[in-house]
C-alpha cells in the first residue's frame, strides 16, 4: 500500500461521505420545509402526471432556459448532456461486470468530453464577455467553471493524450467499494483528475451545485395547479385548535 493509495482512498471516502451526507441533509431540509401556498408558475399542469412531465422537460431539455436565451441554453445543455454521458461512461469503473448500457455509451462518452469542454469554454467566455453576466458573477462562479474545465481537460487528456492504467484505476475503486484496498497508479494526470473530482464532490453540498437537487424541489415548477380544488395548509399556518 503506497502513501498515494492510502491518501486517495481516504480522500475518496471523505469526499463520498461529505457529498452524500451533505446532499441528503439538504434534500431532507427541502423535503421537510413546508410549502404553505401554491405559487406554481403558470400555465401549469392540472395533474401530478403533468407535473412529472413538466419536470422531465425542465430537467432533460432545460425548457425554461430554452425559452429564455437560446445561446445560454445551447452551451448549458451541451455541457450538461455531455457531462451526463461522461459520467455514465465512468460507471464502468465502479461495477463488474459492466452493464450493457454503459458498454454501449462508453465509446460515445469519449467524444462527449469535447462537447463538455466546448460548452464550458463558451459559458466561461460568456461570463467574461457579457456585461450583465459579468456583473452577477462572483469569484466562486468563475472558480466553479475552472474546476469543471480542469476536470474535463485532465480527464480527456488521459483518454486522448497520456493514458493511465485504467485496469488498476478500476481495481482501486472496486477495492474502495469492497474495502479491499488495491494500489492506485501514481500518474500525475490521474492524481490531478482525482483530486479535482474529490474537490468537486466536497464542495458540492456547499455550493450552487445544489441546484441539482434544488430543481426538483422548486415549488414554481413541481406544484399541481389545483389551488381552487385542494387546500394546502402548512402545519405552522394552521389555526390553533
Amino acid at each position: 500500500m503506497t502513501v498515494v493509495t492510502l491518501l486517495y482512498a481516504l480522500l475518496f471516502y471523505a469526499a463520498t461521505a461529505i457529498l452524500t451526507i451533505g446532499v441528503v441533509r439538504r434534500v431532507v431540509i427541502y423535503a421537510r420545509s413546508p410549502a404553505p401556498l401554491r405559487i406554481v408558475t403558470m400555465p401549469a399542469p392540472l395533474t401530478y402526471t403533468g407535473v412529472v412531465l413538466r419536470m422531465v422537460r425542465e430537467v432533460v431539455f432545460f425548457e425554461s432556459l430554452f425559452k429564455s436565451t437560446k445561446w445560454t441554453w445551447l452551451f448549458g445543455w451541451l455541457f450538461h448532456m455531455c457531462l451526463a454521458l461522461v459520467l455514465m461512461r465512468h460507471i464502468r469503473y465502479f461495477q463488474e461486470p459492466v452493464w450493457l448500457g454503459v458498454q454501449i455509451i462508453q465509446p460515445l462518452g469519449k467524444y462527449a468530453a469535447f462537447g463538455m469542454i466546448a460548452g464550458l469554454l463558451a459559458l466561461a467566455v460568456r461570463r467574461v464577455c457579457v456585461e450583465r453576466v459579468r456583473y452577477i458573477t462572483a469569484p466562486s462562479d468563475r472558480a466553479m467553471l475552472l474546476l469543471l474545465l480542469a476536470i474535463a481537460i485532465s480527464g480527456a487528456s488521459m483518454t486522448f493524450l497520456m493514458h493511465t492504467d485504467i485496469v488498476a484505476v478500476k481495481s482501486f475503486f472496486l477495492g474502495l467499494m469492497y474495502f479491499e484496498w488495491r494500489p492506485l497508479p501514481a500518474d500525475p494526470l490521474l492524481l490531478l483528475h482525482l483530486t479535482l473530482v474529490a474537490t468537486l464532490m466536497i464542495i458540492f453540498p456547499l455550493s450552487k451545485l445544489l441546484h441539482v437537487p434544488g430543481v426538483f424541489f422548486s415549488p414554481t415548477r413541481n406544484q399541481v395547479d389545483d389551488a381552487r380544488e385542494k387546500r394546502h395548509v402548512a402545519a405552522w399556518a394552521r389555526d390553533p385548535a
Binding site: I21, E96, S171, Y178, F179
Partner: peptide
Amino acid sequence: MGALLGASGLTIAAEAPCKSAVDRGNA
C-alpha cells in the same frame, strides 16, 4: 451520519464475500 454510512459500508463488505462467486470473483 458517518457512523450510519460506515455501518452500511460494513454490511456491504460483510455481504460481499458471500456473493464472491459472481461479483467479487469478477472484480
